[in-house]
Structure formats: structure tokens, C-alpha cells
């Protein structure tokens, strides 16, 4: 492919009229479909002024919802990260029967509707569920409480860290780790001094995407949380509650926090992609593992 860079081959769609028209049409659609929803959040959130916005955010229910969301992320994201790293290590550093099946199972939450996930959790921990009666007699609350919210969040984000690490660690192979251990390094030492430096950006990339999803999850959490105002409402659920209370400004003020988080996530994502994270082409499902990182640049 190297010699193609020296002269520009003729390609279709280069006629200026066509090119400019197509770019213009697509950009108008981007503005309508992607930019407008983001813009409307900001406009609505501040439609009654900054003071009112501040007051809404400072409302105790909203503050509580923010705390719930932060707490959920603080528990779910680290556990998920540990799982993702462990899964990637097991799957890429060893051969064992059932590897491909394991890969598929890890990816399942990605294709299951969050509502189905929430309903499924009801049948484990709900009164109608497998452990419902046992939990009740032991007086342990999982559903309609923080543990249920954390579990549902962990379900929907289960693949996030693992699927960033697995293709990358597969492509990097085992040689470096094998060299380190044969020189006498312990497993932990090998991981922290050899593997981690090679995967740090991809790991951070996975963590950021995971965090963004945990903080924004609505469907699954909506089923298991019970929607108790000031108790089990996370920020996305609180937005729904305010919106249905005809408090649109309040809903958009709360939504603007999550929208800001989305924008920060996108910026971090682009910055990490420049460092090579997220660029190993991944067949999201358990296809043959890619060994060719993108060749561009």
C-alpha cells in the first residue's frame, strides 16, 4: 500500500459539486440529529436563568440522586475493571477448552435489552425469585436498594473493559510475560511491570466507557430500583421523575450534568484513541481475534 501514497489515484465522488453537496447534506443531518439534542438540553436547562439552574441542582432530591449515581459507579466500575482485567488475562494468556464460549458469554449483556436484564434480576432477588424468600427471612435487601442497582449496572457493563483488553492483549501475545516470569518475576510483578504499561490506555478507555454507561444506565436500573424518591433514585431515574412531574427545567438541569459527562467522555475517548486505545479492530463477538491494528498513521 505504501506506493499508493506517492500519487493520488482517481477515485469516484471527487467532483466538487457532488462532494460539496454531499458534505452539506450530511452535515445538516448531523446538526439536526446529533447536535440539536445536545443543544436543546443546554438551552432548556438554563431557560430560567443560571440562578434557577443552581437552585434545581442544589435540591436535596437531586443531590441525593447525584450521590446515588456516584456511589453506584464507585462500586460497580472498580469491580468491573478487576473482572475485565482478570478475564482478559485468562483468555489471552492461556489456552483452555471453552475459551470461545466464555468470550460469547461475556459479550451477552451487550445484546440483551436492559429491560430484560432488569426483569431477569427480579427473578433472582425479587420475592418471586430464586432467593427472594431466603433474602427476606434474612432481612437482606437487594432489590429496591443500592445492591440491586449496582448488580444491574454490572450486568449491562460486564463486557466494557474486557472487550477493550482482549483484542489488544491477544495481538501483543505472551512472549514478554513469558520472558519476565522465566527471569524470575512473580505473576503480579509481571502484570504490573510488563503487561500493564502495554495496556494502560486501552484499560483507561474501557474504564471511561464503563463509567459513562454505569452513570447513565436507565432501563435495567429502572426495573430494580423501585424509583423511591430521595432513596433509590439514580440521576437518570431522577430525570424521568422530574420530567413526569412537569418540571422540565429541573429535568433538563439534571440531564445537563449527564450530558456534560457524555461530552467529557467523548473528549477523553478521542484523546485516548490518539494514544492508540480502542484502535485494535475488534470483532465484537467471539470471532477470530484480530492481529492487525489499524494501519493508518
Amino acid at each position: 500500500m505504501a506506493q499508493t501514497k506517492t500519487r493520488r489515484p482517481p477515485r469516484i465522488g471527487e467532483a466538487p459539486v457532488f462532494r460539496i453537496t454531499l458534505i452539506a447534506i450530511v452535515l445538516v443531518f448531523v446538526a439536526l440529529v446529533i447536535v440539536a439534542p445536545l443543544a436543546v438540553i443546554g438551552v432548556e436547562a438554563f431557560s430560567k436563568g443560571i440562578a434557577y439552574f443552581g437552585k434545581t441542582i442544589a435540591n436535596s432530591d437531586t443531590r441525593h440522586a447525584i450521590m446515588m449515581t456516584a456511589l453506584t459507579a464507585l462500586i460497580a466500575v472498580p469491580i468491573n475493571t478487576a473482572f475485565g482485567v482478570a478475564a482478559a488475562w485468562a483468555i489471552t494468556k492461556f489456552d483452555f477448552p471453552g475459551r470461545r464460549l466464555l468470550l460469547i458469554v461475556i459479550e451477552i449483556p451487550f445484546s440483551v435489552s436492559p429491560i430484560v436484564a432488569g426483569v431477569a434480576y427480579m427473578f433472582v432477588y425479587g420475592l418471586q425469585g430464586l432467593f427472594g424468600e431466603a433474602l427476606q427471612s434474612a432481612d437482606v435487601k437487594i432489590l429496591f436498594a443500592l445492591p440491586g442497582i449496582v448488580l444491574a449496572s454490572m450486568f449491562v457493563t460486564a463486557p466494557f473493559v474486557a472487550r477493550e483488553l482482549i483484542p489488544l492483549m491477544q495481538a501483543q501475545g505472551r512472549d514478554l510475560e513469558e520472558a519476565a516470569t522465566s527471569l524470575g518475576a512473580s505473576g503480579w510483578r509481571t502484570f504490573f511491570s510488563v503487561t500493564l504499561p502495554n495496556i494502560k490506555w486501552a484499560l483507561l478507555y474501557g474504564i471511561i466507557l464503563c463509567n459513562s454507561r454505569v452513570m447513565g444506565e436507565f432501563g435495567a436500573v429502572s426495573v430494580v430500583s423501585g424509583n423511591i424518591r430521595g432513596q433509590t433514585n439514580t440521576l437518570p431515574l431522577h430525570i424521568e421523575l422530574l420530567y413526569h412531574d412537569y418540571n422540565a427545567v429541573g429535568a433538563f438541569a439534571a440531564a445537563s450534568i449527564l450530558a456534560a459527562l457524555a461530552v467529557v467522555t467523548l473528549i477523553a475517548k478521542v484523546a485516548l484513541e490518539r494514544r492508540g486505545a480502542g484502535r485494535v479492530r475488534r470483532p465484537t463477538l467471539a470471532g477470530p481475534s484480530p492481529t492487525s491494528p489499524e494501519t493508518k498513521q
Partner: peptide, 16 residues
């Protein structure tokens, strides 16, 4: 911007 729909929580996208 293409990734915004993935980054934006669905409830936020819904009310917007």
C-alpha cells in the same frame, strides 16, 4: 460526534 448517541444516557436522549 458520531459516538455521542452512545455516550449520552438514553433517558437524557429521550427527554431531549
Amino acid at each position: 460526534l458520531v459516538d455521542l448517541p452512545f455516550a449520552l444516557p438514553t433517558a437524557v436522549a429521550g427527554i431531549a
